[in-house]
């Protein structure tokens, strides 16, 4: 995975509240990524950033109709691909 976009968010942690991204891959140890996949963080799935803890970390993400809190350090390992509509508008 080469970070090719500079302005567009490339990981979940860069999404602002209310923004959505499509998950591309999970750059995490096998057991953690399996656990996250079971909760809905599957490549191809849309993830929306929701609220966060008062300090800004951990953050809550909306996926498959449920809300899951992740620490920022974990969210930074979940890469997203630019939404197709955004790419077309480019």
């Amino acid at each position: 995975m080469q970070p090719s976009f500079t302005s567009r968010p490339s990981t979940l942690v860069e999404l602002r509240e209310g923004e959505q991204g499509v998950l591309d891959c999970l750059d995490l140890p096998d057991d953690v990524s399996r656990r996250l996949m079971e909760l809905g963080f599957v490549p191809g799935n849309a993830v929306t950033a929701a609220r966060s803890a008062p300090g800004g970390d951990p953050r809550v993400f909306r996926v498959d109709g449920s809300e899951i809190a992740l620490r920022c350090e974990t969210a930074a390992r979940l890469r997203i691909r630019p939404a197709p509509s955004a790419a077309a508008a480019d």
């Binding site: 995490l28 140890p29 953690v32 656990r35 996250l36 909760l39 951990p58 809550v60 449920s66 809300e67 899951i68 809190a69 992740l70 620490r71 350090e73 974990t74 390992r77």
Partner: peptide, 9 residues
């Protein structure tokens, strides 16, 4: 690993 915190709301 510190990153293991996953919490369903």
């Amino acid at each position: 690993e510190r990153s293991a915190f996953v919490l369903e709301m």
